[in-house]
Design a protein around this nucleic acid. Structure first.
Ligand code: MN
Ligand code: MN
Ligand code: ZN
Ligand code: ZN
Lengths: 138, 138
DNA sequence: TTATTAGTTTGTAATCATTACAAGGTAGAA
DNA sequence: TTCTACCTTGTAATGATTACAAACTAATAA
Protein backbone atom coordinates (compact mmCIF):
# COMPACT_ATOMS: atom_id res chain seq x y z
CA UNK A 1 0.00 0.00 0.00
CA UNK A 2 1.76 3.11 -1.23
CA UNK A 3 0.97 6.36 0.56
CA UNK A 4 0.66 9.76 -1.03
CA UNK A 5 4.00 10.58 0.57
CA UNK A 6 5.74 7.63 -1.05
CA UNK A 7 4.38 8.69 -4.41
CA UNK A 8 5.28 12.35 -3.82
CA UNK A 9 8.86 11.35 -3.26
CA UNK A 10 8.84 9.14 -6.32
CA UNK A 11 7.65 11.99 -8.53
CA UNK A 12 10.00 14.54 -6.94
CA UNK A 13 12.94 12.25 -7.59
CA UNK A 14 11.97 12.15 -11.27
CA UNK A 15 11.40 15.92 -11.46
CA UNK A 16 7.74 15.51 -12.29
CA UNK A 17 5.64 18.44 -11.20
CA UNK A 18 3.50 17.49 -8.19
CA UNK A 19 -0.19 18.07 -8.61
CA UNK A 20 -3.10 16.88 -6.54
CA UNK A 21 -4.62 15.14 -9.56
CA UNK A 22 -1.47 13.27 -10.51
CA UNK A 23 -0.95 12.05 -6.99
CA UNK A 24 -4.52 10.83 -6.63
CA UNK A 25 -4.48 9.05 -9.97
CA UNK A 26 -1.14 7.42 -9.25
CA UNK A 27 -2.25 6.51 -5.74
CA UNK A 28 -5.34 4.80 -7.06
CA UNK A 29 -3.43 2.93 -9.73
CA UNK A 30 -0.63 1.90 -7.38
CA UNK A 31 -3.03 0.36 -4.92
CA UNK A 32 -5.15 -1.32 -7.53
CA UNK A 33 -4.68 -4.86 -8.74
CA UNK A 34 -7.37 -4.80 -11.41
CA UNK A 35 -5.58 -2.98 -14.24
CA UNK A 36 -8.26 -0.30 -14.31
CA UNK A 37 -9.49 1.64 -17.33
CA UNK A 38 -9.73 5.43 -17.52
CA UNK A 39 -13.43 5.11 -16.88
CA UNK A 40 -12.89 3.11 -13.69
CA UNK A 41 -10.32 5.56 -12.37
CA UNK A 42 -12.62 8.45 -13.18
CA UNK A 43 -15.57 7.00 -11.30
CA UNK A 44 -13.40 5.95 -8.38
CA UNK A 45 -11.95 9.43 -7.88
CA UNK A 46 -14.65 11.88 -8.88
CA UNK A 47 -16.16 12.05 -5.38
CA UNK A 48 -12.82 12.80 -3.79
CA UNK A 49 -11.64 15.12 -6.57
CA UNK A 50 -14.84 16.61 -7.98
CA UNK A 51 -13.13 18.85 -10.52
CA UNK A 52 -11.25 15.93 -12.07
CA UNK A 53 -11.66 15.61 -15.79
CA UNK A 54 -11.14 12.57 -17.95
CA UNK A 55 -8.72 14.52 -20.11
CA UNK A 56 -6.48 14.92 -17.07
CA UNK A 57 -6.58 11.19 -16.46
CA UNK A 58 -5.59 10.53 -20.07
CA UNK A 59 -2.87 13.18 -19.92
CA UNK A 60 -1.48 11.87 -16.66
CA UNK A 61 -1.49 8.22 -17.62
CA UNK A 62 0.04 8.91 -21.03
CA UNK A 63 2.72 11.06 -19.46
CA UNK A 64 3.62 8.54 -16.77
CA UNK A 65 3.60 5.84 -19.42
CA UNK A 66 6.09 7.75 -21.58
CA UNK A 67 8.31 8.11 -18.53
CA UNK A 68 8.02 4.33 -17.96
CA UNK A 69 6.56 4.88 -14.49
CA UNK A 70 3.50 2.87 -15.40
CA UNK A 71 2.53 0.54 -18.26
CA UNK A 72 -0.30 0.77 -20.74
CA UNK A 73 -1.95 -2.56 -21.44
CA UNK A 74 -3.65 -3.28 -24.71
CA UNK A 75 -6.01 -6.18 -24.38
CA UNK A 76 -8.47 -7.39 -26.93
CA UNK A 77 -11.33 -5.18 -25.96
CA UNK A 78 -11.46 -1.54 -26.87
CA UNK A 79 -10.29 0.20 -23.72
CA UNK A 80 -6.71 0.73 -22.61
CA UNK A 81 -5.82 -0.57 -19.17
CA UNK A 82 -3.08 0.64 -16.88
CA UNK A 83 -0.60 -1.08 -14.60
CA UNK A 84 1.62 0.44 -11.92
CA UNK A 85 3.69 -2.74 -11.90
CA UNK A 86 6.36 -2.03 -14.49
CA UNK A 87 8.52 -5.12 -14.01
CA UNK A 88 8.23 -7.83 -16.63
CA UNK A 89 5.23 -10.08 -16.05
CA UNK A 90 2.52 -11.79 -18.05
CA UNK A 91 -1.22 -11.22 -18.07
CA UNK A 92 -4.06 -13.70 -18.19
CA UNK A 93 -7.48 -12.51 -19.30
CA UNK A 94 -10.46 -14.66 -18.35
CA UNK A 95 -12.90 -14.81 -21.26
CA UNK A 96 -15.70 -15.57 -18.81
CA UNK A 97 -15.46 -12.87 -16.11
CA UNK A 98 -13.08 -10.47 -17.87
CA UNK A 99 -10.65 -10.33 -14.94
CA UNK A 100 -7.00 -9.81 -15.76
CA UNK A 101 -4.52 -11.76 -13.65
CA UNK A 102 -0.78 -11.21 -13.35
CA UNK A 103 1.65 -14.08 -13.53
CA UNK A 104 5.41 -14.42 -13.24
CA UNK A 105 7.21 -15.03 -16.43
CA UNK A 106 10.77 -15.81 -17.37
CA UNK A 107 11.10 -13.86 -20.58
CA UNK A 108 14.61 -15.25 -21.12
CA UNK A 109 13.08 -18.66 -21.77
CA UNK A 110 11.95 -17.60 -25.21
CA UNK A 111 13.82 -19.30 -27.98
CA UNK A 112 14.06 -16.45 -30.46
CA UNK A 113 17.09 -17.09 -32.61
CA UNK A 114 15.23 -15.65 -35.58
CA UNK A 115 15.31 -12.28 -33.82
CA UNK A 116 19.09 -12.24 -33.30
CA UNK A 117 19.44 -9.23 -35.62
CA UNK A 118 16.52 -7.35 -34.07
CA UNK A 119 16.82 -4.98 -31.12
CA UNK A 120 14.09 -6.15 -28.73
CA UNK A 121 12.98 -3.48 -26.27
CA UNK A 122 9.80 -4.95 -24.90
CA UNK A 123 8.25 -8.40 -24.61
CA UNK A 124 4.51 -8.57 -24.22
CA UNK A 125 2.90 -11.85 -23.22
CA UNK A 126 -0.77 -12.25 -22.73
CA UNK A 127 -2.81 -15.43 -22.33
CA UNK A 128 -6.52 -15.95 -22.68
CA UNK A 129 -8.78 -18.64 -21.29
CA UNK A 130 -10.85 -19.34 -18.18
CA UNK A 131 -9.83 -18.65 -14.61
CA UNK A 132 -10.16 -21.17 -11.74
CA UNK A 133 -13.12 -19.31 -10.22
CA UNK A 134 -15.09 -19.47 -13.44
CA UNK A 135 -14.02 -23.06 -14.15
CA UNK A 136 -15.50 -24.19 -10.85
CA UNK A 137 -18.84 -22.60 -11.67
CA UNK A 138 -19.31 -24.54 -14.91
CA UNK B 1 0.11 -18.18 -53.22
CA UNK B 2 -3.44 -19.36 -52.69
CA UNK B 3 -5.82 -19.19 -55.64
CA UNK B 4 -9.47 -18.30 -55.52
CA UNK B 5 -10.20 -21.96 -56.13
CA UNK B 6 -8.17 -23.08 -53.14
CA UNK B 7 -10.06 -20.62 -50.98
CA UNK B 8 -13.42 -21.61 -52.47
CA UNK B 9 -12.79 -25.18 -51.49
CA UNK B 10 -11.68 -24.12 -48.04
CA UNK B 11 -14.91 -22.20 -47.46
CA UNK B 12 -17.10 -24.90 -48.98
CA UNK B 13 -15.55 -27.47 -46.68
CA UNK B 14 -16.50 -25.29 -43.72
CA UNK B 15 -20.03 -24.63 -45.04
CA UNK B 16 -19.43 -20.92 -45.33
CA UNK B 17 -21.51 -19.26 -48.01
CA UNK B 18 -19.38 -18.33 -50.99
CA UNK B 19 -19.55 -14.72 -52.03
CA UNK B 20 -17.36 -12.74 -54.35
CA UNK B 21 -16.51 -10.28 -51.58
CA UNK B 22 -15.52 -12.94 -49.07
CA UNK B 23 -13.30 -14.67 -51.59
CA UNK B 24 -11.55 -11.48 -52.61
CA UNK B 25 -10.97 -10.38 -49.03
CA UNK B 26 -9.67 -13.79 -48.03
CA UNK B 27 -7.52 -14.00 -51.17
CA UNK B 28 -5.93 -10.65 -50.39
CA UNK B 29 -5.29 -11.54 -46.77
CA UNK B 30 -3.96 -15.01 -47.58
CA UNK B 31 -1.38 -13.65 -49.98
CA UNK B 32 -0.37 -10.75 -47.77
CA UNK B 33 2.48 -10.84 -45.30
CA UNK B 34 1.95 -7.38 -43.85
CA UNK B 35 -0.92 -8.04 -41.42
CA UNK B 36 -3.10 -5.46 -43.15
CA UNK B 37 -5.72 -3.21 -41.58
CA UNK B 38 -9.31 -2.88 -42.80
CA UNK B 39 -8.31 0.38 -44.46
CA UNK B 40 -5.48 -1.27 -46.38
CA UNK B 41 -7.69 -4.11 -47.57
CA UNK B 42 -10.33 -1.62 -48.62
CA UNK B 43 -7.95 0.46 -50.71
CA UNK B 44 -6.33 -2.60 -52.23
CA UNK B 45 -9.63 -4.07 -53.39
CA UNK B 46 -11.87 -1.14 -54.25
CA UNK B 47 -10.72 -0.98 -57.88
CA UNK B 48 -11.36 -4.65 -58.47
CA UNK B 49 -14.58 -4.76 -56.43
CA UNK B 50 -15.99 -1.23 -56.74
CA UNK B 51 -19.15 -1.93 -54.74
CA UNK B 52 -17.17 -3.20 -51.76
CA UNK B 53 -18.02 -1.51 -48.49
CA UNK B 54 -15.93 -1.30 -45.35
CA UNK B 55 -18.80 -2.77 -43.38
CA UNK B 56 -18.50 -5.92 -45.47
CA UNK B 57 -14.79 -6.11 -44.73
CA UNK B 58 -15.49 -5.79 -41.01
CA UNK B 59 -18.29 -8.35 -41.21
CA UNK B 60 -16.19 -10.81 -43.17
CA UNK B 61 -13.07 -10.52 -41.05
CA UNK B 62 -15.02 -10.74 -37.81
CA UNK B 63 -16.90 -13.77 -39.07
CA UNK B 64 -13.79 -15.59 -40.27
CA UNK B 65 -12.10 -14.70 -37.00
CA UNK B 66 -14.94 -16.25 -34.97
CA UNK B 67 -14.59 -19.39 -37.06
CA UNK B 68 -10.84 -19.37 -36.33
CA UNK B 69 -10.03 -19.21 -40.05
CA UNK B 70 -8.02 -16.04 -39.52
CA UNK B 71 -6.63 -14.18 -36.51
CA UNK B 72 -7.25 -10.66 -35.31
CA UNK B 73 -4.12 -8.94 -34.07
CA UNK B 74 -4.26 -6.20 -31.48
CA UNK B 75 -1.13 -4.13 -31.54
CA UNK B 76 -0.51 -0.95 -29.64
CA UNK B 77 -1.90 1.42 -32.19
CA UNK B 78 -5.57 1.88 -32.70
CA UNK B 79 -6.33 -0.28 -35.70
CA UNK B 80 -6.95 -4.01 -35.72
CA UNK B 81 -4.73 -6.05 -38.02
CA UNK B 82 -5.52 -9.40 -39.57
CA UNK B 83 -3.51 -12.55 -40.18
CA UNK B 84 -4.35 -15.54 -42.36
CA UNK B 85 -1.66 -17.55 -40.60
CA UNK B 86 -3.51 -19.14 -37.71
CA UNK B 87 -0.75 -21.37 -36.36
CA UNK B 88 0.98 -20.25 -33.18
CA UNK B 89 3.67 -17.67 -33.88
CA UNK B 90 5.01 -14.46 -32.40
CA UNK B 91 4.96 -10.92 -33.78
CA UNK B 92 7.63 -8.27 -33.72
CA UNK B 93 6.61 -4.66 -34.26
CA UNK B 94 9.33 -2.22 -35.31
CA UNK B 95 8.87 1.08 -33.48
CA UNK B 96 10.75 2.84 -36.28
CA UNK B 97 9.05 1.71 -39.51
CA UNK B 98 5.92 0.14 -38.05
CA UNK B 99 6.39 -3.17 -39.88
CA UNK B 100 5.16 -6.30 -38.16
CA UNK B 101 7.33 -9.39 -38.55
CA UNK B 102 6.42 -12.99 -37.80
CA UNK B 103 8.70 -15.25 -35.85
CA UNK B 104 8.61 -18.88 -34.79
CA UNK B 105 7.89 -19.46 -31.18
CA UNK B 106 7.81 -22.49 -28.96
CA UNK B 107 4.91 -21.65 -26.68
CA UNK B 108 5.56 -24.76 -24.63
CA UNK B 109 8.75 -23.20 -23.33
CA UNK B 110 6.82 -20.87 -21.06
CA UNK B 111 7.28 -21.64 -17.42
CA UNK B 112 3.77 -20.99 -16.17
CA UNK B 113 3.30 -23.08 -13.06
CA UNK B 114 1.25 -20.28 -11.54
CA UNK B 115 -1.34 -20.93 -14.23
CA UNK B 116 -1.74 -24.64 -13.47
CA UNK B 117 -5.34 -24.13 -12.40
CA UNK B 118 -6.21 -21.90 -15.36
CA UNK B 119 -7.53 -23.18 -18.68
CA UNK B 120 -5.30 -21.47 -21.23
CA UNK B 121 -6.85 -21.26 -24.69
CA UNK B 122 -4.60 -18.76 -26.41
CA UNK B 123 -1.07 -17.47 -25.95
CA UNK B 124 -0.28 -14.10 -27.44
CA UNK B 125 3.35 -13.00 -27.70
CA UNK B 126 4.36 -9.72 -29.16
CA UNK B 127 7.75 -8.01 -29.08
CA UNK B 128 8.63 -4.41 -29.77
CA UNK B 129 11.91 -2.82 -30.79
CA UNK B 130 13.84 -1.98 -33.95
CA UNK B 131 14.20 -4.19 -37.01
CA UNK B 132 17.52 -4.92 -38.76
CA UNK B 133 16.68 -2.64 -41.70
CA UNK B 134 16.05 0.33 -39.44
CA UNK B 135 19.03 -0.49 -37.21
CA UNK B 136 21.36 -0.28 -40.22
CA UNK B 137 20.04 3.19 -41.10
CA UNK B 138 20.88 4.71 -37.74
C1' DT C 1 -34.97 -23.40 -65.06
C1' DT C 2 -37.45 -20.87 -61.66
C1' DA C 3 -39.05 -19.77 -57.13
C1' DT C 4 -37.99 -19.35 -52.45
C1' DT C 5 -35.63 -17.78 -48.55
C1' DA C 6 -32.07 -17.34 -45.30
C1' DG C 7 -28.07 -15.18 -45.29
C1' DT C 8 -25.17 -11.19 -47.26
C1' DT C 9 -23.93 -6.65 -48.80
C1' DT C 10 -24.23 -1.84 -48.64
C1' DG C 11 -24.66 3.13 -47.21
C1' DT C 12 -25.67 5.82 -43.53
C1' DA C 13 -26.03 6.89 -38.87
C1' DA C 14 -24.69 5.96 -34.20
C1' DT C 15 -21.27 4.80 -30.73
C1' DC C 16 -17.44 5.32 -27.98
C1' DA C 17 -12.55 5.76 -26.71
C1' DT C 18 -9.20 9.00 -27.35
C1' DT C 19 -7.05 13.45 -28.71
C1' DA C 20 -6.96 18.56 -29.97
C1' DC C 21 -7.56 22.91 -28.43
C1' DA C 22 -7.87 27.16 -25.86
C1' DA C 23 -8.81 29.50 -21.64
C1' DG C 24 -8.06 29.69 -16.95
C1' DG C 25 -5.43 27.86 -12.92
C1' DT C 26 -1.28 26.55 -10.19
C1' DA C 27 3.47 24.56 -8.68
C1' DG C 28 7.78 25.84 -8.05
C1' DA C 29 11.55 29.03 -8.56
C1' DA C 30 13.35 33.52 -7.57
C1' DT D 1 4.97 37.86 -3.48
C1' DT D 2 5.60 37.60 -8.32
C1' DC D 3 6.36 35.31 -12.45
C1' DT D 4 6.06 31.87 -15.86
C1' DA D 5 6.11 27.47 -17.69
C1' DC D 6 3.42 23.85 -17.08
C1' DC D 7 -1.15 21.73 -15.80
C1' DT D 8 -6.15 21.12 -15.67
C1' DT D 9 -10.60 21.44 -17.55
C1' DG D 10 -14.70 21.45 -20.70
C1' DT D 11 -15.89 21.15 -25.20
C1' DA D 12 -15.29 19.91 -29.81
C1' DA D 13 -13.12 16.97 -33.18
C1' DT D 14 -11.39 12.54 -34.68
C1' DG D 15 -11.43 7.96 -36.12
C1' DA D 16 -12.23 3.04 -35.70
C1' DT D 17 -15.92 0.10 -35.20
C1' DT D 18 -20.80 -1.34 -34.91
C1' DA D 19 -26.03 -0.92 -35.56
C1' DC D 20 -29.51 -0.87 -38.65
C1' DA D 21 -32.62 -1.47 -42.47
C1' DA D 22 -33.26 -1.95 -47.31
C1' DA D 23 -31.72 -4.17 -51.43
C1' DC D 24 -29.46 -8.16 -53.16
C1' DT D 25 -27.96 -13.03 -53.96
C1' DA D 26 -26.12 -17.97 -53.07
C1' DA D 27 -27.86 -22.17 -52.36
C1' DT D 28 -31.60 -25.30 -52.32
C1' DA D 29 -35.47 -27.68 -54.03
C1' DA D 30 -39.46 -28.11 -57.15
MN1 MN E 1 -0.08 -6.48 -14.46
MN1 MN F 1 1.52 -13.18 -38.25
ZN1 ZN G 1 -13.05 -15.79 -14.67
ZN1 ZN H 1 11.94 -1.09 -38.99
Amino acid sequence: MKTLEDLSNELKRKNIRLTHQRLKILEYLSNSKTHPTVEEIYHALKNEVPSLSKTTIYNTLNYLSELKLIKTLIVDDNEARFDAVTGSHGHFKCDECGKIYDFDLNTEAFDTEYLDDFKVNEKIVYFKGICPGCLSKI
